[in-house]
Amino acid sequence: MRTPALLVDKQVALKNIQVMQEKVDQKNHILLRPHIKTHKTPEFAIKQNQLGKSGITCAKLSEAEVMIQHGVRDIFLAYPLVDREKIRHSLRLAEQIDRWIYSIDTYEGAQLLSEEAVEAGRLAEVRVEIDTGLFRSGLALEEAVDAIDRFNKLPGLQITGIYTYRGSKARTGEVVKDTFHAGVEEAGLMVDLAEKLREQGLPIKDISVGSTPTLEGVLAVEGITEVRPGTYIFNDAMQVAYGVCSIEECAAAVLVTIVSIHGDRAVVDGGSKSFATDVQPTGGIVPINGFGIVKGHPAIVFERMNEEHGVLQLNGESLAIGETLEIIPNHICSTVNLYDYYYFRDGEQVAVSARGKTQ
């Protein structure tokens, strides 16, 4: 096989799907709506749907379109649309499936969606995004009740829920090692907000939370209705660092070839065009050593990279030019997006159909 190449152990991925579904099914009244941002392939999305029967989550309109083309019929677009053409496009897509859920977090965005839904003669189901500590999109908790009351007065919108994504962050925005308690806090904040909204007469039915690292914590909180992890299907070095999974539960790795060795330094044919660089090595509270885990070689550190070169510190290990290595990347979601295909270990080639769908 030519390198660099993205390898996926299908059996490990399918087991990860099954284990996650069983974990969620143990909790009454909680649904699993997996985020497809990790695998970006309809084949796995359909498998997840067959087990959970609760739809999928997408971040981009173009991702959702790919999934619809392959038969997915229940989609939550967890990203605000503030462009009229995109909203009109989404309304056309929504007509093709059973359920389409929008996201809003500003009055301006809500007003645009309202106007276009009314024009199209549609009632748009909406969830409002809440910021619980990641500090990107989402209403602050302090403003949420008044803001959602305003949104609810707009025609053409049916506000059915609230949602958040915080990942492994505390409410201060800092990375935390105790992801269980981060999840408990995340879910607790949302349940409390939902109660306040209901007291004001706002019809909040769905409380959607959770990520792969915080899932155990959010499942421990009564009142949530849905979780949206994504990374769990493949896992990565970041999840290993958090203690969320073992190396053996990492289903995906990048296969590279050693092209050069000089002393204790080896160079492989995978650099920043082959590995995501958005999760940097860190010596912080959750130490991530290098840009990935070199499977079978715990002493080796993937210390730096250029576009086409990955530089490994061998730390005394003996390797040979031409030898191949498997490296579990720090962040698998962004890494998958660099590849047109991945390969199962039996050689089957699978198209990453939603790759590069950024609009």
Score class of each variant (00 low, 15 high):
V301T: 12
V19F: 09
V256L: 06
I247R: 05
R265L: 12
H29D: 04
S211M: 11
A110N: 04
S114T: 08
E129L: 06
M1G: 02
V118F: 14
Y341E: 09
A266Y: 11
V72I: 13
K47G: 10
D206L: 00
Y341S: 02
Q313H: 03
V72F: 05
D236L: 06
L113E: 12
E323C: 01
M238V: 04
A251P: 07
T164F: 04
A299K: 15
N330M: 03
E108G: 06
M1P: 15
Y107Q: 07
P329I: 04
T57N: 04
I30P: 15
V301P: 00
N235D: 02
R92C: 06
E186A: 08
S272V: 05
N315E: 10
K27T: 14
E348A: 13
V256S: 07
P203S: 09
S103Q: 15
K196H: 06
D105H: 09
R84L: 12
A94T: 02
A144F: 08
V24K: 15
E115R: 02
I233D: 00
E348N: 15
G183M: 01
P155S: 00
G290F: 00
I332Q: 14
S272N: 04
Y163N: 03
L81V: 06
E174R: 12
T164C: 14
Q11R: 14
D131T: 07
R33Q: 05
K15S: 11
C333Q: 07
I148Y: 08
L314H: 04
T257V: 15
E323P: 08
L157K: 01
T324Y: 06
K196N: 07
Q21S: 00
L7G: 14
D83S: 06
Y343H: 11
E174T: 11
S54Y: 03
V8S: 10
Y102M: 07
N315F: 11
C58V: 09
V301L: 10
G217F: 00
K37Q: 08
E323W: 00
H35N: 14
L113Q: 12
G270M: 00
K205G: 00
Q239Y: 02
A78F: 12
M305A: 02
V19Q: 10
W100G: 02
Y232S: 08
F76W: 14
E185L: 03
R304A: 06
V267S: 02
E303F: 07
F76G: 05
V66I: 09
A252N: 09
R122E: 03
G210H: 13
K40F: 01
T57V: 14
D131C: 10
I17G: 12
V118S: 08
L14Q: 07
G223A: 14
K15W: 13
V244I: 06
N306E: 15
C333H: 02
G292H: 01
I75W: 01
E195I: 15
E308M: 13
L31F: 07
W100Q: 02
G290C: 15
A147T: 08
D98K: 15
R198V: 05
A266P: 10
N315Q: 13
A170K: 11
I321S: 12
S353H: 05
I87G: 05
N337S: 03
I321F: 08
S114E: 04
I148W: 12
G263D: 10
K10P: 11
N315C: 09
K273F: 01
G217Q: 11
V294W: 01
E63H: 08
V72N: 09
